[in-house]
Design a protein around this nucleic acid. Structure first.
Ligand code: MN
Ligand code: MN
Ligand code: ZN
Ligand code: ZN
Lengths: 141, 141
DNA sequence: TTCCTATCTTGTAATGGTTACAAGATTGAA
DNA sequence: TTCAATCTTGTAACCATTACAAGATAGGAA
């Protein structure tokens, strides 16, 4: 059975072409796209896709814990296929959002939990300039 | 000289009553208020304060690095007087945002820097349920 | 397979937080 | 004291997101 059909079934969501396409797209394109990007990319193969549907599906999938919305900037909704927990780096110059795979701060997490907080989500956002933009800056002088 | 006058002067910003009031308010109320809250609280003593001015001043002070805007949720602008770097815990139940004073993940920060990223900001956001809300839940059963 | 209802998709309209703008007030340097 | 640059204010515009209603689809039951 298709991997994405399985994911939706497991969460009790109906199988629709739109949900499958968006899920596949996010899994295969780990670029933290915004709503506009998802919509315009998928419209190529499915011209009738409505932007409202993209909003709805992102909402459903987020509630089902199949993806997460980043709040690394407040100007747009950035979507991330939910794989292992990881953190992010936003380059202020090219605006790309990179994944950081390294494990992140178990010590503080333990500390907070031991103080009685119930922690459901851990978000780590680093902001600055990526290597590629730094290089361009060097080259361009 | 007034502490806040000094801060503004150091950054080359003109001294205005609105800027001083907002700066003082944020320093004395470390509750990560949103624009609406700042505006309505300060309007009590200064009825002519415009919401546009709150937006403008927050913008100026952020650019001057005197405060930071949290992106812990995408529904509102939360302001934080810029003191020592620290991280945050959002309670999904009462919506309060707590400061986490513990030092946070120097290891990963070093790793990223060593890989060539230039890191300007580090944001750590934890989300879940705070002790006070957990207690209420227990008591209310 | 067929039927039927709950759910989903779509286009359009409404919403509301944020930003743009222009006129009048204030600041601070000369 | 003067005056230009900057700031504050109210109003209007913007536009991403959400609400809504009508028609389509999914999937369980018979
Ligand atoms: Mn990611
Ligand atoms: Mn804080
Ligand atoms: Zn870059
Ligand atoms: Zn709470």
């Amino acid at each position: 059975m298709d991997r994405y059909v399985e994911l939706l079934k497991k969460k009790g969501l109906k199988i629709t072409p739109q949900r499958l396409e968006i899920l596949r797209y996010l899994d295969e394109n780990r670029i933290h796209p915004n709503i506009e990007r998802i919509h315009s990319d998928l419209k190529k193969d499915n011209p009738s896709l409505s932007k409202t549907t993209v909003y709805n599906v992102i909402d459903d999938l987020t509630k089902a814990d199949l993806l997460q919305i980043l709040t690394i900037n407040r100007f747009e909704i950035l979507c991330d296929f939910k794989a292992d927990p990881h953190h992010h780096f936003l380059c202020k110059e090219c605006k790309k959002v990179y994944d950081l795979d390294e494990d992140f701060n178990c010590h503080l997490l333990e500390k907070i939990r031991s103080e009685g907080y119930q922690v459901d989500e851990v978000h780590g956002y680093f902001k600055g300039t990526c290597r590629s933009c730094l290089n361009k800056r060097e080259g361009g002088k």
